[in-house]
Amino acid sequence: MKARRWIALGIGAFVLIFSFITTISFALQTYTQGTALSGGEQTVVREGNTSGQIALLEISGPIINSGEEGFFASGGYNHQSFLNGLNAVMTDRQVEGIIISVDSPGGGVLESAEIHRLVEEAQSVHEKPVFVSMGGMAASGGYYIAAPAERIFAHPQTLTGSIGVIMSSINVSELLENIGVEENVYKSGPYKDILSPTREPLEEEDEIIQAIVDEYYQEFVDIIADGRGMDEDRVRELGDGRIYTGRQALEEGLIDDLGSIDDVIDEMQAHLGANYQVVTSQVNQGFGGLFGMTVDRLFGDTELKMDFNQPRPLYMYNYE
Rank of each mutant, 00 (worst) to 15 (best):
Ala3Trp: 06
Arg4Phe: 10
Ala8Gln: 07
Ala8Thr: 00
Ile11Lys: 01
Gly12Gln: 04
Phe14Ala: 14
Leu16Phe: 10
Phe18Ala: 14
Thr23Val: 00
Ile24Arg: 02
Ser25Asp: 07
Gln29Arg: 02
Tyr31Asp: 02
Thr32Arg: 08
Thr32Ser: 01
Thr32Lys: 00
Gln33Glu: 15
Gly34Gln: 10
Thr35Glu: 01
Ser38Trp: 00
Gly40Met: 13
Val45Glu: 14
Arg46Thr: 01
Glu47Gly: 11
Thr50Tyr: 01
Thr50Val: 11
Ser51Gly: 13
Ile54Ala: 03
Leu57Arg: 11
Glu58Tyr: 02
Ile59Gly: 06
Ile64Asp: 14
Gly67Phe: 01
Phe72Glu: 07
Gly75Glu: 07
Gly76Glu: 15
Tyr77Ser: 10
Tyr77Ala: 10
Gln80Thr: 14
Leu83Glu: 15
Ala88Trp: 14
Met90Val: 06
Thr91Met: 10
Asp92Ile: 02
Asp92Val: 07
Gly97Lys: 12
Gly97Phe: 09
Ile98Val: 15
Val102Arg: 05
Val102Thr: 05
Ser104Arg: 07
Gly107Trp: 10
Gly108Cys: 00
Gly108Met: 05
Leu110Asp: 07
Glu111Asp: 03
Ser112Thr: 04
Ile115Gly: 07
Leu118Glu: 12
Ser124Gln: 15
His126Leu: 06
Glu127Ser: 11
Phe131Gln: 04
Ser133Ala: 10
Met137Trp: 05
Met137Asp: 03
Ser140Thr: 13
Pro148Ile: 14
Glu150Tyr: 04
Arg151Phe: 00
His155Pro: 00
His155Phe: 02
Thr158Leu: 08
Thr158Ile: 12
Leu159Met: 13
Thr160Gly: 10
Ser162Met: 13
Gly164Cys: 06
Gly164Lys: 05
Ile166Phe: 08
Met167Asn: 12
Ser169Trp: 08
Ile170Met: 03
Ile170Tyr: 00
Ser173His: 03
Glu174Thr: 02
Leu175Lys: 12
Leu176Gly: 08
Asn178Asp: 03
Ile179Asn: 03
Gly180Asp: 11
Gly180Pro: 09
Asn184Leu: 06
Tyr186Ala: 11
Ser196Leu: 08
Pro197Lys: 04
Arg199Lys: 02
Arg199Tyr: 01
Leu202His: 11
Glu204Trp: 05
Glu204Asn: 05
Glu205Trp: 10
Glu205Tyr: 01
Ile209Asp: 03
Gln210Tyr: 05
Ala211Cys: 09
Asp222Tyr: 08
Asp222Met: 13
Ile224Ser: 01
Arg234Asn: 04
Arg236Met: 07
Glu237Arg: 04
Glu237Met: 11
Leu238Gln: 13
Leu238Glu: 12
Asp240Glu: 03
Asp240Gly: 12
Ile243Gly: 12
Gln248Ile: 09
Leu250Ser: 11
Gly253Glu: 04
Gly253Ala: 09
Leu258Cys: 13
Asp263Ala: 08
Gln269Ser: 12
Ala270Trp: 04
Ala270His: 09
Leu272Tyr: 07
Gly273Val: 10
Asn275Ile: 11
Asn275Cys: 13
Gln277Cys: 05
Gln277Tyr: 09
Ser281Leu: 07
Gly286Ala: 00
Arg297Ala: 15
Leu298Glu: 14
Asp301Glu: 15
Leu304Asn: 15
Leu304Phe: 15
Asp307Arg: 14
Pro313Arg: 02
Tyr315Lys: 12
Met316Trp: 12
Tyr317Pro: 00
Glu320Lys: 11
